[in-house]
Amino acid sequence: MSSITFAGPVPATRLRITARGRRVLAALVALPVAAAIAFAALSGGSALASGEQTTGNTFATVTVQPGDTLWSIAGEVAPNADPRDVVAKISQLNLVDGGVIEVGQHLAIPAEYGATGR
């Protein structure tokens, strides 16, 4: 059996990055940053593009009592208006699905009608 001998300690080599490697590394770092900026720019303007007003809305509230229906509440808060229109606006404003309301529930009434009957 023969033994293998080494000439001495192996010198440590330094990592060298070429110009092409630096460009690739810079692109990999910049890509998520650019994607985040593009996402923020595209999604940030959606609220303004809707054209909906977000200020100046004031509402009166009505608490649902036993036996109340949207129709009866519409008749109380807007006796001179068409109850179908009032029920539709109250339902839309409060996200009431199928006209189902519960006792104790607070319903927002559009300012144009107010809560004159209660």
Rank of each mutant, 00 (worst) to 15 (best):
M1D: 01
S2A: 12
S3I: 10
S3G: 08
S3K: 05
S3C: 01
I4W: 15
I4H: 13
T5M: 12
T5F: 03
F6I: 11
A7C: 10
A7Q: 05
G8K: 09
P9R: 06
P9T: 14
V10W: 11
V10I: 12
V10E: 10
P11Y: 04
A12W: 05
R14T: 12
L15N: 07
L15M: 08
R16D: 10
I17V: 09
A19F: 12
R20T: 13
R20A: 13
G21S: 04
G21H: 01
G21V: 02
G21W: 02
R22S: 11
V24T: 03
L25E: 09
L25D: 02
A26M: 07
A26V: 06
A26N: 05
A26G: 15
A27K: 06
L28C: 14
V29M: 05
L31P: 06
P32N: 11
V33M: 13
V33N: 02
V33A: 14
A36W: 15
A36P: 06
I37E: 11
A40C: 04
L42G: 07
S43F: 15
S43T: 03
S43N: 10
S43M: 14
S43R: 15
S43G: 10
G44Q: 00
G44D: 00
G45C: 14
S46E: 08
A47Q: 08
L48W: 09
L48G: 11
L48E: 08
A49H: 09
A49N: 04
S50T: 04
S50I: 06
G51W: 00
T54L: 13
T54F: 12
T54N: 07
G56E: 09
N57G: 04
N57K: 06
F59E: 07
F59G: 03
A60H: 12
T61S: 15
V62G: 15
V62Y: 05
P66R: 02
P66V: 04
P66T: 03
P66A: 07
G67M: 07
D68Y: 01
D68N: 11
L70H: 00
L70A: 00
L70R: 00
S72I: 09
S72A: 07
S72H: 08
A74P: 00
G75R: 05
G75I: 03
G75T: 02
A78E: 00
P79G: 07
A81I: 15
A81E: 15
D82H: 12
P83C: 05
R84L: 06
R84T: 14
D85L: 07
V86C: 09
V86N: 06
V87G: 10
S91E: 09
Q92G: 06
L93E: 01
N94F: 11
L95D: 10
D97I: 00
D97A: 02
G98P: 01
G98H: 06
V100E: 03
I101M: 15
V103T: 07
V103H: 13
H106W: 06
H106N: 15
L107R: 02
A108K: 10
A111Q: 08
A111W: 02
A111H: 04
Y113M: 03
